[in-house]
Amino acid sequence: MDMSSKRKIRVLVAKPGLDGHDRGAKVVARALRDAGMEVIYTGLHQTPEQVAEAALQEDVDVVGLSILSGAHMTLVPRIKELLNERQLGAVPLLVGGIIPEEDALALKQSGCADRVFTPGDPLESIVSYIRDRCI
């Protein structure tokens, strides 16, 4: 297989905020890797500015946030705003974590998040969503 000339889907997987639970983010990162994507993983405790700047420098096709702290209604809009400032408003923003249904709806309706995944969503649904968005 010639892997040198093909375009690859690049995904930023980031954990903004203060919670230290990265198991979920790592499992998702691994699933995306196994689906042939390049995953840039930035580690724990990222500020919204760090996330947006990494998205810019790495020129990713998708940004995925893992948030288990409950601070999603603050973090997600702020990150969206910072992405917009960098002309990255068109980059799909996905959120995963413990997100109550009404919050998920609000995030989507306000245009902050393109899609929210919660516990129980199969990994394949994340993979196929990203694939569809990146065609």
Binding site: R33, D34, M37, I40, G43
Partner: peptide
């Protein structure tokens, strides 16, 4: 990159 799937975890940025 994986020799099997072509995917990668790029983790140096951490």
């Amino acid at each position: 990159n994986s020799p099997f799937t072509g995917g990668a975890i790029l983790g140096d940025r951490i």
